[in-house]
Nucleic acid binder design. Structure first.
Lengths: 223, 223, 223, 223
DNA sequence: AATGAATGAGTTTTCATTCAT
DNA sequence: TATGAATGAAAACTCATTCAT
């Protein structure tokens, strides 16, 4: 009895013995640590420390470091997917919808550097974790459908050029933003400016939207 | 005589007693290993093994693992810079010159995955190595001048729109190609296609050039 | 039951799962290894082996080799301090008390060569570890108070000369014993005798006490 | 001819190709490095660097690190021996001679910390190097004869007590000075004073001479 | 569910020494 | 005599993972 009481007190005091909370804390800590140091550079010790739980729980909940990375990756993917779902582009005219999509894509990367970091690492190792997940395409088909539908609407309306492949277009608009953020530091060094400032980011945002929309214009010169 | 011959053979076979060759071999091995595994994942042992020299020579010639990474980075940067210098865009009309520049940028990344890999790692660690190198901006100014000059010529000729910032434009054309290669594996998984095939690469190449040139066209609709 | 018994046996045999015992074993092994080989010559591997624990525990419990040395040093200092406290000199008349102190000082060094060895090393490196410890003076003030009090009593009684500085005196009596032990081997070589024999040690002990007490006598010739 | 000229120029320019000078430089560098870092802590690379010669010369001239240590030890021993020989105590009355001897012993250690450092290391390793040198006792007999002769003269004159063993006495006066210097840093820490200052050294010098001479006085009280 | 202790295999780095000229 | 290159063995320290409770 006494022992039980002691434990209960401990739990209440420290907020422990909430398995789901421990799991969540670990996952959040993993995303941060993997983003900062990469898969190879991240430390299991540090992840547990950040999460405020015992290191062994990593193995208890996730199996091993690699599986924890996979879970972290799925976590960030599912977060962006959820945000994309909420975009409601169908309610907007095609040009406005597309601008919104490009802007969202830019803003999301601006606000989620950990997404970029995890993706880079995953690509370094040949997308071993993502590749092992058979439901990846299904998970992302809504996105490509969204792009395709908006492109279609714009083409039908005559505001977009008629020969734009949705996958290529998606990669292009993603690339315009992604590269700016993922290589921000070396670009800053190369061009001897600080591309990390709020002003530089805002400028880039305008350029990206403008650049994408310009590329999408019908080619009047061929008339 | 025989002794001399034996020795010469030994030297040729094993590449001994040629310090410059040892250094070069280490640097080449470092580029490969760092590209494959990243800074944290790369193994000094493995680099020495690949180079066929004693591990201690890494420390002898380069100081430590970090400095070796810096040297590898400078190596790949200087290689692309050398190629860029040989472009001779001034001899071409602006549109052709720009297409060539975009095409080159794409092709170089296609052929040099190690450049992308090293750059990604450098950015993960906040460009610590590039930032420490004071001659980085100077090293790359020729490139941005090239873009600016070509843009200027095209704008003067009226074949390019008049409001294109050269730095933003450079980042955009680089991003269109870079993202495709750096994230090739996850993109392949997401879209359930193999973006690594020769055919997919050729298609992407056409798209990138087309996309960039389209964005560069003067806006006829505002006439 | 059987399983429990087996486990208990295992624990007793191997000393597992007793963190305090592991720590103590490491500290004891460190004192020995550092005494034998010095800070630079000591091997962390060997310390762990001697202690019968995993090498990593050194880093787990003590941080690094240097901190382990510091801990070993504090250990030997605290041991001699504990012994000094137990001397109870105040109960003896001054001359007897002083003889006892000098004798103790000699005996302690005779029985604790590791104390000398660690001290020598600490001095070689500029007392970096001791210097970093702010409670060193406090730790040793009882000793110097003891010497000062005994000297005072003897001077008041007229059995000691009146102008003896306690710090200088302490250094002198320590030096008379310390040098004999710390340089025992080279002295033996130089004088072509074995100063390590029980007989030689006993002779030296008599000499040291006699020498110190003689130096302490009031100077009758000045009457 | 041309080759010869080139070499001569090289020699004159760099002062190389003077074997004896190289040897001397190495020995001097070895004494310093071993004194600072100890036998285990000293680096052959560093010794060569300090001497300004190629590392291989260490092996060429001295065999290996251990033999170099032996040579360094013999070097410092022979230096103090030379100084002791020049003392000319026989010309002074016994008390003055003895004061001079004690003072010299103190001053030499004050000015030659490297002697103390090398000796400490040699003792740590069980005087392995000194023990291997068969001419050690012979090398030092002049010293002990000097002490014995001076003691004898003083005893005959009645200014020294009659029962002082020369070896014990030598060890005592050496110890009074040696311990102060060898343990200067820890003593400073323990007593919370700086025993390294010129003033503290001068004070100690007076104390040591006084202490030794007091211990040497005939015991008037037994009359 | 949770923990602190413990481990073995590895990783960077160091270093005395030898090689080839 | 002198040198720079090269090496193998070992050192400190790290880290993912498992154990015992």
């Amino acid at each position: 009895m006494d022992e039980t009481k002691r434990r209960t007190a401990l739990i209440e005091r420290q907020g422990k013995r909430d398995p789901e909370a421990s799991r969540r804390a670990l996952l959040r800590a993993a995303v941060t640590e993997f983003a900062e140091k990469g898969l190879a550079g991240a430390r299991v010790d540090e992840i547990a420390r950040r999460a405020g739980v015992n290191k062994q729980l990593v193995y208890h909940y996730f199996g091993n470091k690699d599986d924890l990375f996979r879970a972290a990756l799925e976590q960030v993917y599912s977060e962006i997917r959820a945000r994309e779902k909420a975009l409601a582009l169908a309610d907007l005219p095609p040009a406005a919808a597309m601008e919104r999509l490009v802007g969202f894509s830019f803003d999301y990367l601006a606000e989620h550097p950990e997404f970029i970091a995890l993706l880079n690492d995953e690509n370094r190792y040949g997308a071993a974790h993502v590749g092992a997940s058979p439901d990846m395409p299904a998970m992302h088909s809504p996105l490509i459908s969204l792009v395709a539908a908006t492109l279609d609407r714009g083409m039908r309306d005559g505001v977009f050029r008629g020969d734009m492949d949705p996958v290529q277009f998606y990669i292009s608009i993603a690339g315009l933003s992604y590269f700016f953020f993922s290589n921000n530091r070396t670009l800053s060094a190369i061009f001897a400016t600080n591309l990390d400032s709020a002003k530089a980011v805002a400028m880039r945002r305008r350029h990206v939207i403008d650049f994408a929309m310009a590329a999408l214009r019908p080619d009047k010169s061929t008339n």
